[in-house]
Design a binder for these strands. Structure first.
Lengths: 208, 208
DNA sequence: GGCCGTATATTGACGGCGTCAATTTACGTC
DNA sequence: GACGTAAATTGACGCCGTCAATATACGGCC
């Protein structure tokens, strides 16, 4: 009797966070397509036009969602690198593992990060969150200058390879296999290939 | 006077091709989002339900579109490789150039190829068209066995790197830059990085 | 040459979507 | 306790994909 209105109603304060939470749940369940403004509103217990007060449009909602996800990914990478032991090559593997692990654990979240057509291109927070990861990688790779290509290009090479591998894995174009020679997981094998090089016989891998 | 009906009307034969053509034009103009069944029908000069006779649903239409694009890309790669001169490393650059060039020339087409959520996952023709490219690459890489990782992994490494680089380029995360050291286009620099390896100082690049 | 079955195209409807405008509700402040 | 304003609701619009019912035109068969 004391509470004839069981739903305390949002009104000021917590709806924005509630919408993000609902959107994340919908994203995990059904991918970005399932994250419609109306579905998010239903899940949060408000009417279909309520989100408009907090997000200009669907892109804005997805951009906020993606920014949070990016931050979480960056944090995860940083944490694993901070805890990593071993030399430079091991650290590159840690980086690749962190990205691959996150993407395989939360495929829809990772995919959203790159759905530029569903996100606000100009959003500063989003761009910044992504740059943070790239900068971390350049720092890891700039320590020595022996390679014939610049640290920038090496960073682009690794980042491209990891992202490409993950994207193709998530799309079902690759399956989880182990390298036929080293028995290492494919994901580790390709990083090894990049570290050692795949040039002509005997050129790279001076294991001698 | 002779032709009171200027539009000969499709009816039998050419509508399917007309729809694909219209869809491709819409794709180039506005991306996959712009390829709606109704817009395609309008462009082809038929009513909104006519396409249903040729494509079960939107996914089927996009899948047919993607299959054709994949075939064209595979043909382009094969042609450039057939015409290529130079050693194995040069051929890898040719492969990477072919993919990158196609993607940058027709960004929306390339993006569609990987929009698995908008395509029929089980479609045999589509899978086959994609496998053709990958198999070509494995063949290029399987000639020698000196690397510590298998040819399969080397193919995955290169294909992942090229695809990842292109995907990131198309999303605006990279801009067209030249390597700070070699002055080669970034795209060529990262392939070089993979060929030579990015391992610790002096380990790769035995230029000595 | 005329009939007819079937493939093809049209018409119309349904629910869901994003978004906008008008309205009502509830909070903080004075 | 009244009031201004931010927040939420209601209702509408046009677009979308899809389905069912209907109309149309082709090709084979007599």
């Amino acid at each position: 009797m004391k509470k004839p209105k069981p739903a305390p109603a949002y009104h000021h304060g917590n709806l924005r966070a509630g919408l993000i939470e609902a959107a994340l749940a919908l994203l995990d369940e059904g991918g970005v397509e399932a994250v419609t403004i109306r579905a998010v509103a239903r899940r949060a217990g408000v009417t279909h036009a309520a989100p408009a007060n907090h997000f200009r449009d669907r892109k804005a909602l997805l951009t906020a969602l993606a920014t949070g996800i990016f931050a979480k990914l960056a944090g995860r990478i940083a944490a694993k690198l901070a805890a990593a032991r071993g030399g430079r090559e091991a650290r590159l593997q840690v980086f690749a593992d962190a990205v691959t692990g996150f993407a395989l654990a939360h495929p829809h979240r990772y995919r959203l990060l790159w759905r530029r057509d569903s996100l606000d291109d100009g959003d500063a927070g989003l761009q910044q969150a992504m740059d943070a990861i790239y900068d971390r990688l350049v720092a890891e790779l700039s320590e020595d200058g022996a390679s014939s290509v610049s640290a920038d290009s090496r960073a682009v090479a690794l980042w491209s390879m990891v992202h490409g591998y993950v994207a193709l894995r998530l799309d079902g174009n690759f399956v989880a296999l182990r390298d036929a020679r080293t028995r290492a997981p494919r994901q580790a094998a390709i990083v090894m290939a990049l570290i050692e090089g795949i040039g002509g016989a005997g050129k790279a891998k001076p294991k001698r």
